[in-house]
Each structure stands twice: as C-alpha cells, then as structure tokens.
Write a protein that binds this DNA or RNA. Structure first.
Lengths: 125, 125
DNA sequence: TTCGAATATCCCTTTACGGGAATATTCGGT
DNA sequence: ACCGAATATTCCCGTAAAGGGATATTCGAA
C-alpha cells in the first residue's frame, strides 16, 4: 500500500503508469470496433434501451447485447434496470482517464521532438 | 466540396463525424494491444530504432517490426531511415484527433445526463 | 400461473490477430 | 562484388473475437 494519496489527483485509483496502460489497452479494445464505437457515439444523446440501440443502429438484438456487455466490462457504460428494459448510459470515468492518459503526450503538440541530439544518440560509436 | 474552410480549425481533414469514428476505430485498434501500448509509451522519450525498442521492451525483432507497422498504418508513428537503422517516432496528429474526439464527450464530465425526462421518454405509452 | 415483450446467453462457424521461427531485403563498409 | 548488421516479410499455428441463429431468462400484466 504505497503512495495511496501520493498525487491526490481526482479519483486516482492508485495505479502505476504501467497498470494505467493495461487499463487503457482494455478500454481501447472496447472502442476498437465499429459497432461499439457507434453505440458509444449514440449514447452521447442520453441513456437508451437495448432495443432502441439495436433499432437505430440496425443491429440485431443479440449483437447489441454482446457489444454492450463488452462496453460494460470495459467500464464504458453502465446499466440501470427498469421493468423489462435495461437502460445503458455512458460512464464519464473512462473518458476522464483517457484525458489523463492523453495529457502524458501533450508535449508532442508543441515540440514534437525536433531536437536532434536525442536522434543522434542512436548512432553507434 | 463543401465547407473546406468552414471552421478554420487546425488541420481539419474535412471528415464527417461518422468518418471520424471510423478513423478512431482504427486508431484505438492500434493501441488496444499491450506491446504496442508499451511501444507508444516508450517512444514518448524520443525516437528509437527497432532494435532498441525490441531490446528495451524484451520483444523479438520481428514482433517489434510488426507492431511498428500496425502503429504506422494507424498513423501513430512515422519512420525515418538512417543507414541501416530505421528510427520510429510518435506523430502528434492522432493524439490531437483523440483530443478532438474526446471533446465531443466532455459534457459527460459535468452533467452526466442527470435529467430524467430523457430517461422517462423511453417508457412506452 | 400463464403469456408476451425485452434482454441475455449459448452454440457454431468464420475470420482476424498475435507469437514463433525462418527467410528475404537493404545498406554501409571493405 | 561480398559480408554482416539491421530490419522487413512470410508461413504456420493457436487462440480470441465477431456474426448468425436459436434458446433461456426475467419481469410485468392479466
């Protein structure tokens, strides 16, 4: 139990950078599928039931359920039961995490490693 | 040829939202693999040759080459030949694109669809 | 408790993908 | 022109994942 409150940032789960990468691997995997990407995009408008999702994206109900299950396991969506219907909605956490992950690459925006010394260091002696 | 300079934003490739999603599907696919994620993470420090990447991540050279190829096709990295060596470096574009994509979900941070009217709309009459 | 709507799960087949090992290619040096 | 280092490519194999279809489950209504 090291560094529990180390950074004190937001809802830090106390993960090392490598673990964060693992989590993002799973997150990206969930998004790396056209149908699921469309589901996520659609869910931006608000929570929807499985039937509505399948309907609007012209998916078959079983496929919609399967994709939603994957998204749920990756933490992208959460479900709320209401009678027979199950309403799926986006969870904000993974998007925040992605934002944090991206922040580690933000220096690329500006400098883009234009310095050559790093580059030349790869040359053998 | 509509709206070429429409928004005047950065390097807008003139893609519709659906096309953007397709591109991100590919991008996420490239990142949805532990070794590739580690390669990307490693390349933050600066450009590296294939051998160095394979070395530091304890990958075999062919695997490293394959993963780099996938990353390259997804536009995540670019290569620069120098003698026998090929130096791979991160491209800033995909990260910017991810940032833009994320922006479309930023409202989740704050409100998180707490309004119930959208939710109740799903109820049958 | 029986029925029907909504959803999840199971089985099967096909395909995509990653690892391993061998081989091809490219390039500078001599 | 030849050799060796660095890298890319190919082939094979095993596994994970996705689609299709049928079926199981759950829940409210009557």
């Amino acid at each position: 139990m090291r560094g529990t409150g180390e950074g004190g940032r937001k809802a830090d789960s106390g993960l090392r950078r490598d673990d964060m990468d693992e989590r993002h691997t799973e997150l990206f995997g969930a998004l790396a599928e056209p149908s699921r990407m469309r589901i996520v995009s659609l869910l931006r408008e608000g929570p929807l039931s499985v039937g509505e999702i399948a309907d609007r994206l012209e998916l078959r109900q079983p496929q919609a359920s399967k994709h939603l299950k994957v998204l749920q396991q990756a933490g992208v969506v959460e479900v709320q039961a209401a009678a027979n219907r199950r309403h799926y909605r986006l969870r904000p956490e993974p998007f925040r995490e992605m934002e944090d992950w991206l922040a580690g690459y933000r220096e690329l925006w500006s400098e883009r490693f234009d310095r050559l010394d790093e580059y030349l260091r790869n040359m053998p002696d």
